[in-house]
Design a protein around this nucleic acid. Sequence first.
DNA 1: GTCACATCGTCGT
DNA 2: CGATGTGAC
Length: 829
Amino acid sequence: MGITGLLPFLEKASSACHLRDLRGKCVAIDTYCWLHRGAFACAERLARGEPTDIHILYCLKYVQLLLSYNIKPILVFDGQHLPAKAATEAKRRENRANARKRGAELLRLGRIDEARSFLRRCVDITHEMALQLIQECRKRGVDCIVAPYEADAQLAYLNRVDIAQYVITEDSDLVLFGCNRILFKLDLTGNGRLVEASKLHLAMGCREDRYRFEKFRYMCILSGCDYLDSLPGIGLAKACKFVLKTEDPDIRRALAKIPAYLNMRQLVVTEDYKDAFLKADATFRHMVVYDPVCRRQTRLSDPDEESTPEQYCCNAGQFLDEAIAFEMAIGNLDPFSLRKLDDWHPDVAGDGEEMSANAKKMRHLSIWRTDYATLKEATKETGTKAHKSSSLTTFVKRTVLKQEENQVELECKETIADVLQGYGIQSDEPSSKRLCHITSDVSSSTTSTSKVALEYRDLEALDVMGQLDQPATPKRKRNPFAISPAKRTLGGKDSPEVLLSPTKITAANRSLLHNVSPVKRIDYSQQRSQGGEVVASGSRFGRLKTAHDKGVVADEPKVISRFFCTKASVKIQTNRLIGSPKKVGSSGADADSLVSPTAIVKELKSKRDAQTLRATAIYLSSPEARLPNRGDRTPEKRRAHTTPGSDKEGIIGQLDSGIATAEEDSNTGLSSSQKENDDFEMLDTMETNSAKQNRSSPRTVRLALFERQVKKPLAQSPNRSDAAEELAIVLDDSSNDGDDGVGKQEIADALKTEAPITTLPSAPSARTATKTLVKSPVKTKARSTCKRPGLSANKRQASKGDSGTGGMTQSRLSMFGFQKKPSMQLNNR
DNA sequence: GTCACATCGTCGT
DNA sequence: CGATGTGAC
């Protein structure tokens, strides 16, 4: 059960922590947590006894994560149950058995969803699972150890003898077993919360000089722990209050004073409780654990040294025969039946041929090596030098601002490879060159000290570090999609595009999409002809078109929309799009270039060549491919249905695709990206029909679109003046400012989203329009609502909240680091 | 403000 | 097992 409410209580003793801060350290892991979480993914299969390895893979993902930060993991598994916990365990088993039975019953009745919820609750982590994981870890040279009893105590032992400097768990008990540094809530991004024993007094509100660890442990036991229920009415808060008040070193006498100190007269502290308390305390201190270095069982701390009477240790486990204890610790035995399941041996394993290859790969010193102690000692003496071979020979000093300690500057040693790797840049050929501690004047350092020949990769490292030291402010935020500026100046065309993950600081008001989008990354401002005349318009459409035109050259991906280009797997290369305006003028390829992606799909469809269609990258990269039941009701068919073959209505028809009005009651599952495709097609068609269309501007077309949407020409609508005016203002305002074409587009998107159409009540400037769109109220009563196939009623409700964000789903927004805003607060107007 | 108790989610797609 | 919510004191 752990200690109820301990983690929130420890808030002040904890700090945010990332795995990158643990480089080169050793970490002991409470593997039960991972296995248990992983087993949830395949609960049904496990419950039915079907073979699966999803839970194993889940754990290995974490192992890999640790290894990628050069952290040595030691996986610790639970051993036998303590007699003191037998009752609790029996109860759990019973609960699981019950859940299993009910699950099976429901399954027979065909109520699958309900059955699932029960089958999930009955997942039990068996030693077979543990062994499966242990065997995978052995292949990877990762240490595992099975605790004689509770993994908690084993973890604490490894931490206390400094075999592992950190412990990873979800169980708050670890704190009172006496761990020094515990990482809770570690996720796959490497973030977690670090609780340090040295800060516990902060959480308790105790002066540091008066604090002793016993106080904390007593407090936890009093508040109720696995080995002892609390006195009625005593929780963490009361226990803390009491522990801070009493100064009596004799705990028996102190316990008797609880009712007096806490003003709880009705409370009676029996002799039995005092005994049980001392036993529980001894259990935490003297639990039997395994010492991998001496290969024998021992106690977490010595009862003699702490003069704990033998009688109180009765719950702390018993020693096993030495040989059996060893076999159990390395995982060969089932801890309960002591049956032999495997016969691995650390001393023999290294001799095998395949193992020697692994040993090479093995980057960390195994705790099972007989020379572990001496080697570790050697590592300590020679410092970090011994701890790494080739790639870590060079160190870069940089100062790191630690946020939570009032900006104390700490010096930390990191290698180039470390820095690069930490931000997702693989260093294939680790640089062995020495880097200077200079981040600004790179050129002078390269020239003046001739022995330092900085390479592009090194410069990147410097760049990353420079960016890291730059603090984020409300106005300037870290942009996960920013591209290294070094690339443009130094890398040139042929250097690979490098995303400097969370390092780069850019203006917060600039759309993060700007950097991912193939369209927005186009530097349209440079697209002037030689006379200085602007070739491409500043609008998104203009840029889109220009990009599209350029992309026609064979093998180059064609830009389709914000998110897609014609080759699904090909990354748009900015340098091809930036600064090559010459192709814009060359009209030769232009005619061909105007074949829109939608047209290709259409053509393929007409040929009924489904195979080709599916194989087409366009199709695969389009949202259409992701529609449920895409075989039977594609947008293509709907389009044909709603606008039956009329060429004259072609443009409007295409515009209309993806929009379902209430009257038509047709469905659409199109995302904004797909709509953008349609926008694009609209541009195509416009171009070819330009004579007939009298060269209509995008704005006209969008007004047409708007009219179409409300199903009546705006002229006949009572809202016409307001709505159209506002729309016009919005569109006009944004048309001068090229970069704010986004705002225009967002609005156009918003008009087309599934959610009720919104218009701005009083047209603000386009700049704020983009921002406030989320909050804007529904003024024009929306008549075209959308029903999406496959969405249940409540989900549809939920998706309404996304309206106004240009069709972006919340998950996508949060992917880019946006918080969900309290949207639609003006709804009730 | 505290505590006891009940209920839900843990993954992955 | 933790997080969260609710109701009682």
